[in-house]
Nucleic acid binder design. Sequence first.
DNA 1: TCCGCGTGAATGAATGGTCATTCATTGCAC
DNA 2: GTGCAATGAATGACCATTCATTCACGCGGA
Lengths: 209, 209
Amino acid sequence: MAPRRLDKRAKILRSATKVFARNGFYHSKVSEIAREAGVADGTIYLYFKNKEDILISIFEESMDEILRLTREEIGTHQDALSKLRRFVRLHMTLMEKNPRLAEVIQVELRQSSKFMKEYKNVKFLEYLQFIAEVIEQGQREGLIHKEVSPAIFKRMLFGALDELALQWVLSKKRYSLTSMADQVTDIFVNGIAVSTAANGVSATDGVVI
Amino acid sequence: MAPRRLDKRAKILRSATKVFARNGFYHSKVSEIAREAGVADGTIYLYFKNKEDILISIFEESMDEILRLTREEIGTHQDALSKLRRFVRLHMTLMEKNPRLAEVIQVELRQSSKFMKEYKNVKFLEYLQFIAEVIEQGQREGLIHKEVSPAIFKRMLFGALDELALQWVLSKKRYSLTSMADQVTDIFVNGIAVSTAANGVSATDGVVI
DNA sequence: TCCGCGTGAATGAATGGTCATTCATTGCAC
DNA sequence: GTGCAATGAATGACCATTCATTCACGCGGA
């Protein structure tokens, strides 16, 4: 009963994730989700209000889990730049380990601006805020330039990670996402420009991080 | 006749852009596009194969124009870092001046991975390639670190710009996008980290990747 | 100048197919 | 025997697309 209910709900969500990833939300049929989950069409409606509710549930529950993992993995006892590096690695790893989830997030996050406007996405905003707080910490620590706007930076970083993940998904995952993580972090932390100082890298120059 | 035909086609495209931006592709009705354009439903099918063909046409023709403007505006007589700064500004300005187009690009670019997989988006790839070439130029000039992968960087930059534009669109355009451009460029060029050399920023400190 | 004919653009009502959703019924667990 | 989850066939709403018909215009003949 109670456990059965939870099992079934979770099974439907897992099947829906698979089907949405395969066809995209609008081309997915409820009956296909039902078939995939091994339940009748009508059963879906015992657990979800409608098709869109399934999509939102997938997203919210995944974000819950991602947020939980992120907070757990990125402890409180590190400097901001180390946290940032860990964050980027973790994001890539999570996408890599849950490719179907990654696809759904790609689909849903951008599905339609109308949808995005109406559905206030609290969990996602929290995820972004996590980044902003790391930046603020870094500014207090004197590690990150005060001129950097945490609100702009959090969007930039997320956008960059998301676009890389999208490409990875579209390329049928032929390469490793996680292996790009450090390069991405390096660029955000140090920039792409060669130092403007005339005589290059001397022995006293620190390797950042 | 001939001119009338072109007028009508353009009018339908403009109306479709408006309608898609308002409702998202899947929630837009062909009849609404027709009404908006002041033509009959059937007329649409004299100019386009089907609804999806309208979307693809909007996108391709816009990308043509954007590419043209980008190549024109960003001449060949500059160093790579200046080009990059100009590119970012131009991208923001174009989005800001064509908010409805921006919305459609947001919708379409991510619509569904299935759609993206099937529709080889040559113009968009060219746009990304433009960024990669600027990076390669910078590496030849010695202005940009050799370790930076142009292929990764082009995605990062586009992702960052795109996410900022998406937010701007969703926020009902209450602030200026263009005014963020330089901050974005600064971060990509110089990074967010304060120099790590022990005694502050000296003239000889290099930022190392 | 005027008429009417041919052409092809434009129309929009009708069609048909596709699903999301419902709900009367079933059958299982206790 | 009762209650409740589960079923899946049936419903009906929705909309892209079609196509028989109308319309507008330019041309040539009188």
